[in-house]
Design a protein around this nucleic acid. Structure first.
Ligand code: SF4
Ligand code: SF4
Lengths: 135, 135
DNA sequence: ACAAAGTGGATATAATATATCCACTATAGG
DNA sequence: CCTATAGTGGATATATTATATCCACTTTGT
């Protein structure tokens, strides 16, 4: 019932990027130092963000990463999902899982609603909102 | 980012109890059979429910467990908390944990709000509500 | 006395989260 | 072209947590 450490790393990374002039490239190593995140682990994390289309990367000398979208167009739910995959507060809410008592089970819908409420709160917060608060 | 299996066991156990005439004692073994839950594991789960004051237990012959309160007075959040302890969607929301950047961190409040939204949805659903839907 | 049923501690097993290692590929710049 | 740099990707290690089992004990109705 907790976001993973990696998810927070991802959020802080996105914040770090968003606090910079648009289009600026930042090296993963620099982010790891500034945020106190193990660099090798952060690399993996960035790959997930990249796969989700939240950051663009550039290899080689002068490389690094940058936001793929404007901070206004990225919300917290996007980032959490990028790292944790589809959110499912219970096994039966995972895509593809079929529970035999699904039809008669009163628990599943309640969890689904609670989960929706959670996600909606995250969706309401854009990266830009967060950066603003930070200042 | 998921409730544990044990938490669902607890919820289903409470539902099982609530679907009975008030005050009736049910044996853990029976519940485990009817719900397909490993009995030894369910015993531990019941102890947590008991500790949280959600069920009353009686030992020995003709013993078993029963609801400690009316189904109307128990909500889903109560049960989840009974098993998982205080809910904290991130480490900094755990009671007692102090994060050095807490004061300037814009992430923490967002997660706190999302968590509150989640809990509120669970609070809105009483055990009685769920049993009703089941029928 | 005896069997039933919850209590509690110890342990085993599996799954997941976190972290590290290292070989590889792409790229800017000399 | 060479080289240092920086992301890519696979394999592995370690720690933590979730799930499950074992068993000795206590309580209690008959
Ligand atoms: S029993 Fe209900 S809550 Fe549990 S997995 Fe099946 S549908 Fe979901
Ligand atoms: S950095 Fe922010 S979100 Fe992360 S633990 Fe500290 S307060 Fe919480």
């Amino acid at each position: 019932m907790q976001i993973t450490r990696q998810t927070e790393y991802a959020i802080r990374t996105m914040l770090e990027l968003a606090s910079r002039p648009r289009g600026e490239v930042l090296q993963v190593k620099i982010i790891s130092e500034r945020q106190g995140i193990p660099v090798e682990f952060l690399k993996k994390t960035v790959q997930l963000l990249s796969l989700a289309g939240l950051v663009k990367t550039r290899r080689g000398v002068q490389g690094g990463i940058m936001l793929a979208k404007a901070p206004e167009d990225v919300n917290m739910a996007d980032i959490v999902k990028a790292i944790e995959g589809p959110i499912a507060f219970n096994i039966c809410l995972e895509p593809g899982y079929i529970c035999p008592n699904r039809d008669i089970c009163p628990v599943s819908p309640v969890l689904a609603r609670a989960q929706a409420a959670f996600l909606q709160e995250l969706k309401r917060e854009s990266l830009a909102d967060l950066v603003k608060k930070h200042d």
